[in-house]
Design a protein around this nucleic acid. Structure first.
Lengths: 287, 287
DNA sequence: CCCTGTCATACCCGGCAGGTATCACAGAGG
DNA sequence: CCTCTGTGATACCTGCCGGGTATGACAGGG
């Protein structure tokens, strides 16, 4: 009676996101009528109206908005359960659980720290196998939530640690990366205001799930693209100190005085109870 | 293909907890054969063996243990979604969402703080209705997780804040509550060791989901029972300072020097995005 | 060797998820 | 005013699958 099958959740999420039964049905690979009926049944079972049918499209009610948020979390938890269970497959014999951990890392960030962590952990006596999973901009959170990853390196304040357990690993300042020839590159230090409003160097806009924030800067989704655009004198970027590791000859790094410090954490789902994970965290905090 | 219906999850959880298909089926209100078949299908779909059938009972494989933990979280998230959506029902008109928040509080704890919080919040201009939900020993965590509550007052280190967002509200020391006539009641202060091993006053054992930890003390599930047993000179209890509010004449409170301080937090699910909740938290942190 | 407890198999049935065809209705144009 | 289009709802049918009952297979205990 108060069950909420995942199928129903999937259906509702599709409709709530598309705000259109036809498109939602197509996305789900089914016909529109059964989808309509399923949503009606869902509303009846919950005793709540979720959608306002406006004869010209659909909009969410208050309850619908709640179910959109909570349902996302529930679906993520469910697929996470499936994925992590699959991954634990074959690990039957209690003698050698042959655990494998998936570690999500923002591509090309924290190179040095990651290297040290992997080396130190590999030296542990009962080290599990670690699979490093490169993730897009701020994607580590989703990866932890939906089970693609078991543990992640995150960077506050860019990533939100909400809902995860975490330990602090490292704090660093931020630098502006400028074209070597630019006038500002001669400064000893800069402020955020100095670099956020340079007329000839608009800040680049990072891809996030294929979309870009509005603004004048170039659209990028890749560190190499960015590096190249800076080298060409087309843009400027703000990065943590450790980005110095991949600077080109055509780049100049200038410390920012008022940028918030970047804190690298190791984070994992709060309910995790894995021995291998505990070992990795212990290793990380000892670095 | 990688869906994991909630029905399957419910079935597996039952079997994993009972470790017995017959009893699990009974608990689920169904016959045993379809349950067996459902679990087999689940194992085939996941491509993973979850249970070891020992011809004499059943035990979990490694993957089964993982699914037991992750599945619990997923099921909680799903029922939470259903409950919170139901509760948001009728809140259709964006003009007046008539939000109601459910606040879980350990019964009889933090009386004074709770009173101040409710008063202060009620004075806010756009205050939602607050339903106070008394919870058993350390039950607030489950209530937040499975959606029975939206926000809770928790007491570290007794409650675990893992997986929730929280703000610290208050820190207090702990006291021993003794029968007024007892020799130890004459002391100015005591240590934990002093009260944990009094031969004639064994520490009481609190009910937790109907079961009791082992030990010599009396079994209780209610503050009034405890108060009475102390008054009768049968037991001693350790409580935060604020418990002085409900002491009887026959009780004596003695501060404990080495007991860890109790920190009261207001905590909520990390993904919450409710305006009413935000208002309550703002009010709470300003107290 | 039989009895008991336990899970798997065999087989049947009814309900419901899903498909197709169609309706009802609101807006846009003419 | 009528028609055409896009939308979600309704009607009806069908096949699958979830669930039930009966029974089998097998390990332990007496």
């Amino acid at each position: 009676m108060d069950t909420l099958e995942t199928r129903e959740l999937r259906y509702f999420m599709a409709v709530a996101e598309e705000l259109h039964f036809g498109r939602a049905a197509e996305r789900l690979g089914m016909a529109q009528p059964p989808l309509s009926r399923a949503i009606q049944q869902l509303e009846r079972r919950l005793g709540v109206s979720l959608l306002k049918r406006n004869r010209r499209g659909v909009s969410l009610t208050g309850a619908g908005e709640v179910l959109l948020h909570e349902g996302r979390a529930a679906l993520d938890a469910t697929t996470a359960a499936a994925r992590r269970t699959r991954r634990a497959g074959g690990a039957d014999s209690p003698g050698g659980p042959r655990n494998r951990l998936v570690l999500a890392v923002k591509a090309a960030a924290s190179h040095e720290l990651l290297q040290k962590l992997l080396d130190a952990y590999a030296a542990e006596p009962d080290a599990a196998e670690i699979e490093v999973l490169p993730s897009g901009t701020c994607e580590q959170e989703e990866m932890l939530r939906d089970g693609r990853a078991d543990v992640a390196l995150m960077h506050a304040p860019f990533n939100s640690l909400a809902g995860f357990d975490s330990e602090e690993l490292m704090t660093e300042g931020q630098i502006a990366i400028l074209p070597a020839g630019h006038p500002l590159a001669a400064h000893k230090t800069l402020s955020l205001a100095d670099v956020s409003d340079i007329p000839d160097l608009p800040l680049a806009r990072w891809s996030r799930h294929g979309t870009y924030p509005p603004g004048p800067g170039p659209e990028i989704h890749d560190q190499t693209q960015l590096a190249q655009l800076i080298a060409l004198g087309r843009t400027v970027a703000v990065f943590p100190d450790s980005a110095r590791a991949w600077l080109w000859a055509e780049h100049t790094a200038v410390p920012l005085t008022d940028a918030p410090p970047v804190v690298t954490h190791i984070a994992w789902p709060a309910h995790s109870r894995s021995l291998a994970l505990a070992g990795l965290i212990r290793t990380a905090t000892r670095l």
